[in-house]
Write a protein that binds this DNA or RNA. Structure first.
Lengths: 272, 272
DNA sequence: TAATTTCAGTGAACAGCGTTAACTATCGCA
DNA sequence: TGCGATAGTTAACGCTGTTCACTGAAATTA
């Protein structure tokens, strides 16, 4: 396979041309604008020819979605690699890269992170397997959190509690990542859902009614979460001072704090 | 208008029948399965007749989406009213009601909270106005947070910082809710995005690869967030003991804690 | 080299879609 | 009784995904 035949070369070229056309339609007209006839028209072909390359429109879209997952993952990995060796700096860079790509490519974001549409997106595609591109994407965040945990355990709910509450349901994650400490798994899940929620609400115009500059809220939330990760374990003394400068503060170091409770979960609502 | 004419009665009946049909198609086949011809067929009509009631398919879907927003909002308000007077208990009940409705109605959730599709959802509908049903939905969460803040201010980043970082962008929110304290606005935005992220990822099958029981993660995160809200201000002494029982703990009160940092934002990544 | 198989692409067709136009029947009111 | 508004019809246009039978060229085999 080191030397692809001429046929194979032409074939892969056609495949990428088809997917490029599909993406162009996605960007300009939304997912419903992706049509075999339009793609073929742009290529100077007829629609049935595409069936030599993809079994259906849905399969084509699924393939495109996988490409987008990978494109985004490579972007995140590049941001991580440019951020130096500090895990928290890596997480910051990856989170910002995630938002940057998502806001720059809202249609693509909607395709891979929006609601799965039966005829369009492969419905409930094999998203439960670690081979799924979405799994490989989310997984990129796990390693820095794991590194951080090993260097200096961050503040987290006690492991016994997490194990009791989450232990059973982490099997899929551990299946693909070995024995991840439950605190790491929890920090990942909590952080990933917050990151996703923040970005998805912005891209989907979900809080246009409340906020004008979603970027400022994003940066603030980013600091809140990393502050958690930088906080040592319950009884730890202060680690040495900062080395990286504040990358996003609007005017001077925020020097905020006290967002979060310290006396922990009481297990329910405390009366008025 | 107290006595609608016979014509009007028939008309509204037809309108609701059309929307019922649209919703049925949405549920069974996804948003792309909503078609004027299918709706009309189910009603024993022909497709062009629907144009007497809606100017286009897109308008019909937008109308259906508004209904769904309102249905969900009523559900949340009912949950709030059943939860007694304690704000945190209200927030818990509303959050659980939000997830319950969303997981029970994934297609509907996808329509109103997923990616806006140009030809289907009204593209970037007037979502920046406080009249938007989505705005009215999110706004339901603000009042309990405001009540809680007035009774006993919860732990939050200092107001000056929040005002400096978020002040300018909260205009739309304040436009519809008067002078909400910035700490309340921040708690709302942070909580709403977390709630949305958690539920959307579950409904959209976004972390099937990592987790088997999203409900357990949801409950854990719920407790984490409410623990923040129950924590008093930085130097406050302990308020009186609990009155509401723990509504969701699996076995006994979790009594966890120390999730979150206390020394606050340092403004950037601290070296390895 | 010649025969044959594989493969990319075409054109016609089917069923379905949103939407418009012209037309008809009925209902409510003066 | 007559008339205007309203609700519905049929026909048609252009679009869609998909299948089928077919053609022409390229690669492989005898």
């Amino acid at each position: 396979m080191a030397a692809p035949t001429r046929r194979e070369r032409l074939r892969t070229a056609t495949v990428t041309e088809i997917k490029d056309g599909a993406r162009r339609l996605l960007v300009t007209g939304g997912v419903d604008a992706i049509s075999l006839r339009a793609i073929a028209r742009d290529m100077g072909m007829t629609a049935p020819a595409i069936y030599r390359y993809f079994p259906s429109l849905e399969a084509l879209v699924a393939d495109l979605a996988a490409d987008l997952y990978n494109e985004l993952r490579l972007r995140l990995e590049a941001a991580r690699d440019d951020a130096g060796g500090a895990p928290v700096a890596q997480l910051l860079a990856m989170s910002r890269a995630f938002r940057a790509w998502s806001t720059a490519h809202p249609a693509e974001f909607g395709l891979i992170f929006g609601a799965p549409v039966p005829g369009r997106t492969a419905f409930v595609e094999g998203s439960a397997t670690p081979d799924h591109p979405g799994a490989r994407l989310g997984a990129v965040f796990i390693q820095p959190i794991l590194d951080l945990w090993r260097r200096s355990p961050f503040r987290a709910p006690p492991g016994e509690l997490l194990e009791r509450r989450l232990g059973g349901l982490l099997e899929p994650l551990r299946l693909s990542h070995g024995e991840v400490p439950v605190e790491v798994a929890y920090a990942f899940l909590a952080g990933w859902t917050r990151l996703y929620g923040l970005v998805a609400m912005e891209v989907f115009h979900q809080f246009d009614w409340a906020v004008t500059d979603a970027g400022a809220l994003f940066e603030l939330e980013l600091e809140m979460f990393t502050a958690q990760l930088l906080a040592g374990p319950p009884t730890a003394q202060e680690p040495p001072a900062a080395s990286d400068g504040p990358p996003a503060a609007s005017d001077g170091p925020p020097a905020a704090g006290r967002l979060t409770g310290d006396e922990g979960l009481t297990g329910g609502a405390r009366g008025h």
